[in-house]
Design a protein around this nucleic acid. Structure first.
Lengths: 203, 203
DNA sequence: TAACAGCCGCGCCGATTTGCCGCATCCGCG
DNA sequence: CGCGGATGCGGCAAATCGGCGCGGCTGTTA
């Protein structure tokens, strides 16, 4: 049902029962995944994880290089950060879909809100995940058919862990400035402070 | 741009500059708006407000009557509450699109989360607004062309928001099974229960 | 140099929230 | 019919949070 997105069907051996997609027997071009994210370490980690899962991964860290890669070697899958240093990931989404209409794109970001999620899906993304997302979740979103409730969840990150990772990321972005982080996260400095001191054993 | 949704163009005099849509000179059938919401007072208020703006309004307060109305008199526009007493508003969306592929639907929900927003747009809604949404916003969403691609990225999500989105996502994937969700999320059923009842009191 | 502004760590205390118990339903299944 | 599992909810001790304020340590600026 809900077959509303145009040009959804990927030409090659995409389908499977229940709408789930498999990489089995796909050519290199049909296993190609482009990851566009300006957070280099995260980008690399995700790239490795996805390679382990059978994707042929390429990475980019800006709108410019992302669009470029999309045009030169149109991937069958893509993971795109909404917020890139030199623009919006939505631009990359457009380029990707132009280069290969059947591409399955997952949006990934720590700066999500409903408005941008709506825009992303309308632009052609198949899903939109808030950023502390593990490779499992990304893979499921990429390969989930268009079934409404895609995949039964395996073992997701715990709720607190998700929050903690997010806090960590913002904290790093704020150059370990507690007050600033608390402000951006809309939480109380004292609370953040307590969390950091308890959950602290790290560089 | 971002022309990825199929059958998006409404046949009659839909377009205008900047993609905006106008009701000017439309027939009754092309000004028809179906509002489906089980909150009767809100429903009536919105109905009156939209009539003032030139729509020909019809209301329904359940999935059943909504689908029925959609089939008997397919509207050109619709406002649908995501959560209705007897089911999901997404069912109504399907019926609406089947009855009239070009229908412009705005989803309305008490508390919005990204996962359901994505589901709504994939189901064919043109926008997704959290309640309380005033008539102005609803009208804008209904008549806004699919122009304006990038709503400017905001500041990071709040820590609690990230956690909440994650919970919601897993919850949906567990088919709204509280116990199962709590187990997977490694949190206490009672706590989850309390959260759900507080943060999602009404549709 | 003094004044000022910002960040940081921390103690304290009242208000919430949590973890966890049990209980009473209400299914679906054999 | 009983059994396992889900749900909603009252209650209670313990943990956490939200705020306030303090003193100390930078920078920047007048």
């Amino acid at each position: 049902m809900t077959d509303t997105i145009a040009a959804r069907r990927e030409a090659p051996g995409a389908a499977a029962r229940d709408g789930a997609i498999s990489l089995e027997g796909r050519s290199e071009a049909d296993r190609r995944l482009l990851i566009v994210d300006d957070d280099a370490p995260l980008c690399q980690r995700l790239a490795r994880a996805m390679e382990k899962r059978g994707f042929s991964v390429e990475t980019a860290e800006s709108v410019g290089s992302g669009v470029d890669a999309a045009q030169r070697r149109p991937p069958a899958f893509a993971v795109v950060d909404l917020r890139l240093a030199d623009g919006s990931g939505l631009e990359v989404v457009s380029a990707l879909r132009q280069a290969r209409p059947g591409v399955r794109i997952v949006m990934l970001t720590g700066y999500g809100n409903i408005a941008t999620a709506v825009a992303a899906v309308k632009a052609g993304a198949v899903d939109y995940l808030p950023k502390p997302a593990d490779a499992d979740a990304v893979e499921r979103a990429l390969l989930a058919g268009d079934s409404a409730l895609p995949p039964p969840p395996a073992d997701p990150m715990s709720a607190d862990r998700v929050r903690w990772e997010h806090i960590q990321r913002v904290f790093e972005q704020c150059e370990r400035n507690v007050s600033e982080t608390a402000r951006r996260l809309k939480m109380h400095r004292r609370t953040l402070q307590r969390m950091l001191s308890k959950h602290a054993p790290r560089s």
